[in-house]
Design a protein around this nucleic acid. Structure first.
Lengths: 156, 156
DNA sequence: CTACAACCTCAACATTAGTTCAGGTCAACA
DNA sequence: TGTTGACCTGAACTAATGTTGAGGTTGTAG
């Protein structure tokens, strides 16, 4: 993810941004911005010379995309979530808050699972127990088999 | 990751395992076991008829691989870690413990980062602050710029 | 002996998230 | 006007982690 920092021979400062400017300000490569656009995560219009122009809004959008990615959410889901933002008016802080709420829940869940995993890691991976019955690491089928509460030491 | 559960028309119970038996017992597809073998994560020898045979040990190995993967460790690193196990003697509980210790540390780190991320998520994504200076989401360059302690709200 | 399930290899495909490259255009500065 | 850097498109490539399929072999049950 090289950031290709151009933006130097700057166009006269305008309200809109060129792809290079967005790249420089967001830390995302131009190629990635093209990609996000193809995938429907961001939008642009074109200048007279067919160059992409972005609203300043896009910076927040890209930042949010990156944050969401760090939580482990795939781009397709991020796109869907972003699609829920108002199409016409500029999204408000509340809009963004709504968006982040769902992600926060997912993130909580991921943290919970990882913590659970961590807790069973030391206790289990090095447990030395040879019982196929008792050790969820030796016998992962148990993990799937036990649907009810109880033995489910490991997440699935 | 379909598990292809054969193992029924079972060979006379032996000490070693066929690939299908390992698949059934580990919950990992035969194709994945082939793949792990190509990648050097597990080993087998061949029967007279050129079929793979595994030591029972492999079940633990596969289980460990799956656990490590859940922590987010790439296969290549898992392979390297497994390569540190004793080659001749069967790994002891202590061997496995050593292995898991490093992973536990990585897992701790990942949990820490995700937690940090979660904490900044609500506060930041919906903050409504428009200051390019103050909001790490608006201005991810800050994130990279501040090497010292202080402003690094977001992990990298 | 014949079926049929399980096994074999090798190659191609799938998915996610992009990057790289070739070949060409546009815009600003000297 | 010429050069240069940013930009354009489309296709091909990367990496990780496997899965799928074709075409052929093995092994066990009836």
């Amino acid at each position: 993810m090289q950031a290709e920092k151009p933006q130097k021979p700057s166009r006269p400062l305008t309200q809109d941004l060129s792809v290079g400017e967005v790249a420089a300000r967001s830390g995302v490569a131009v190629s990635a911005l093209h990609f996000y656009e193809r995938e429907g995560l961001i939008r642009s219009w074109r200048s007279s010379g067919n160059q992409r122009r972005y609203a300043r809004e896009v910076l927040r959008r890209v930042a949010v995309i990156k944050v969401a990615q760090r939580t482990g959410i795939p781009l397709a889901s991020i796109r869907d979530a972003l699609a829920a933002l108002p199409d016409e008016r500029t999204p408000t802080a509340q809009d963004w808050r709504n968006l982040s709420e769902g992600w926060r829940a997912e993130l909580d869940e991921r943290i919970r699972k990882l913590t659970q995993l961590r807790d069973s890691l030391t206790g289990c991976i090095g447990c030395g127990c040879l019982s196929v019955r008792d050790c969820p690491l030796r016998n992962p089928r148990d993990e799937l088999a036990s649907e009810g509460p109880g033995a489910r030491l490991l997440e699935r």
